[in-house]
Write a protein that binds this DNA or RNA. Sequence first.
DNA 1: CGCGAACTTGAGGCGTGTCAACCCCTGTGG
DNA 2: CCACAGGGGTTGACACGCCTCAAGTTCGCG
Lengths: 247, 247
Amino acid sequence: MVSSTLRPRHRASRGVECQHCNLCDLCLPAGLMPEELRRVGGRLVAGRRKVGEDEVLFHAGDRFDAIYAVWTGFFKTVLRSSAGRRQVTGFQMAGELLGLDAIDTGSYGVDAVALEDSEVCVIPYHRLATLAGRLAPLQAQFHRLMSRQIASDQAAMLQLGSMCAEERVAAFLLDLLHRLEARGGSATAMRLRMSREEIGSFLGLKLETVSRTLSSFHARGLLVVRQRDITVLAPDGLRQLLERAAA
Amino acid sequence: MVSSTLRPRHRASRGVECQHCNLCDLCLPAGLMPEELRRVGGRLVAGRRKVGEDEVLFHAGDRFDAIYAVWTGFFKTVLRSSAGRRQVTGFQMAGELLGLDAIDTGSYGVDAVALEDSEVCVIPYHRLATLAGRLAPLQAQFHRLMSRQIASDQAAMLQLGSMCAEERVAAFLLDLLHRLEARGGSATAMRLRMSREEIGSFLGLKLETVSRTLSSFHARGLLVVRQRDITVLAPDGLRQLLERAAA
DNA sequence: CGCGAACTTGAGGCGTGTCAACCCCTGTGG
DNA sequence: CCACAGGGGTTGACACGCCTCAAGTTCGCG
């Protein structure tokens, strides 16, 4: 008994059907049976929105009404303190959600900025809440994704709180590669979408330190770095860097 | 002092009714109307469990089947890396939830340790999921609490990634006081439940640095510190420390 | 072809870590 | 009631990793 509300026809308003999306086993509908997927149909995603490189999907403080799922492209989220400090709190790629921190306060807490030309699925929160109430597997998957964000934020806290610069950079590279591999990318090579400064902000380091650390890895034969192209030659070498740590 | 989490005798058989709990507007049932609260009745909380000081509520890796809500007392959560690094990822007090990071993987990701004699409400996740599917306001509040945890973890990332030691300690004290005040405590005085080392682990500092910083605040007349008793004399002084920061 | 942004590299300073000594509380047992 | 032990906390001296500042290089793009 969802009444199909009449909405003005503009580009982003056409329903998008999850069952025809190639990301459906990575994103919100993951774990749904074909029959359930069909029930979701086009009622979850209100539409797609293009966000050009360096454009802002939403600003901290904007009124919250939708979660966004990255469909194509790459984003960063930036938290700004009242004192003007800035901290990159994460990088998001296909199938990952943006805006989860806004449910509590009703307004977004971070800026979401595209690092390359991107497209996102617009998921009005009230639609998600309604559908999740009826479709237990959808609710379950939504909870899993929020939970995953919590776990990944805590992993970031571990990096920031108890690793030295080399370890942070190594962990960062391995995490990125792992996520790209899960999306069909190479397990060893990638093109970074973010600048040294953005990496540094995420890792609590200055851009020079990031640069020096990458150069050092290069010199030790762990990887090849040429600007934003990185090829890891010895992933186990990076992993060992993380393993051999004092308590 | 080492204790096992396998303690069947703590398993309470009687349901606990949220509508008779003094925390009901801080915790999971917050925002529910009396009528809805009655519908929840004793079907959400399976029972209460006592956890003595230094005892472990759950270990990282334990199979996940319940969320816990702190009823009385005080907890810390500790994330351990494969290399043996340890990071305190948070401190939890009355009305706050433990175990949210476990929904995704099906096992807890951190250790939860009581810092004083405590009691928690045991909320089997399947019960919560079922009830949330039927009671939209309960679902909404659960989402808000997960969202709040994400936002607070990101605030911690900001502290760890872009603040100096003094700023971290000031922010930490103000946050603790704020949360205690929301629970009816004093806005200026408190007894810390955790050691300098645990504060340091949370803030990414060594215990000596925490101690020195508190001494320095004391010397400047911002607060009085005597072991674990802290009285803030100039909360605005602490706030100013945070405000006057370079970008 | 040349400008600017991003990146790299170097030299020196500073904040926090490390190591060690000491102090203060609390609990315990004579 | 006091002596003592032990853990947590404080303080000091020094070391070191990362930051700061600055110069130079590479690359993309008009």
